[in-house]
């Protein structure tokens, strides 16, 4: 049977290709712009934190002894936790091997260590117990680290003033190695250091809450007091004694 030859409008195929390719190029460009903006935003936050820390440190040194009526948390960099979340998001997007991510993480780790030292100094001078958790993890082949991350995120959601310092043990940073030595941490992950005590392996939310119970109670009471003072109806935390 005779077929019915039809003219093919090749120009339509070419135009479609150009539009589709244009969409691809635009999308890849936007993707790059967003990533660069994120890196710039994180760098900006890091600069702020760095400045905050330097300022607190200087203030601390100048006064020689701090005003111990001041809340310890207020002298520390409050954006540190938020930045950790953002960095973790970037790590998921760009991959843990991204050069940008590694650089930012290294700088972030140094800021964390500095913040931690300042908190310790404040605690010693004012004779208070720091409410901090040092957390060593790895990204590869560590399911327990993922679970531990969920636990610590949940605790920080409940107690916004609880400071969690997270360190990627795979990061090639001598300061982290030194911190591991000082805190007597082995190479096993996940590892938590709470009040000088080392806890190796996954610690459930109940385990961590039990260890931190006295401090968390205080945090909760402080939060309630602050909430009452500002006459807000916001409820922070839950009763951990139950």
């Amino acid at each position: 049977m005779e077929s019915h030859p039809r003219k093919i409008e090749w120009i339509k195929y070419v135009v479609t290709f150009l539009i589709t390719a244009g969409l691809f190029v635009t999308v890849f460009y936007i993707s790059r712009v967003i990533s660069e903006k994120r890196v710039a935003e994180i760098q900006s936050i890091q600069n702020n934190i760095s400045l905050d820390l330097l300022s607190s440190e200087t203030q601390f040194s100048l006064l020689n002894e701090s005003d111990c009526s001041q809340d310890g948390n207020s002298i520390l960099a409050p954006e540190l936790g938020q930045m950790g979340d953002r960095l973790s998001g970037m790590e998921t997007d760009l991959g843990p091997n991204s050069k940008d991510v590694i650089n930012l993480k290294e700088y972030y780790s140094l800021l964390e260590i500095k913040d931690y030292m300042l908190a310790r100094e404040f605690a010693q001078k004012c004779n208070v117990k720091p409410i901090t958790v040092i957390y060593f993890y790895k990204n590869d082949n560590c399911d327990d680290c993922t679970k531990q991350g969920y636990v610590l995120t949940a605790l920080r959601d409940q107690y916004p003033t609880l400071r969690v310092y997270s360190f990627d043990a795979d990061l090639n940073l001598s300061a982290i190695d030194t911190l591991e030595q000082i805190t007597h941490v082995s190479s096993t992950v996940p590892t938590l250091v709470i009040d000088g005590q080392v806890y190796t392996g996954f610690q459930s939310i109940d385990d961590v809450t039990k260890v931190l119970a006295p401090q968390l109670k205080k945090l909760q009471a402080d939060a309630k007091k602050a909430a009452a003072e500002t006459q807000t109806t916001e409820v922070i935390g839950v009763d951990i004694t139950n």
Partner: peptide, 15 residues
């Protein structure tokens, strides 16, 4: 800026 998906495949999915 951190809540907008940035991966190209996710953005192409949105298109």
């Amino acid at each position: 800026i951190f809540t907008i998906p940035s991966q190209a495949y996710a953005l192409l999915g949105i298109v």
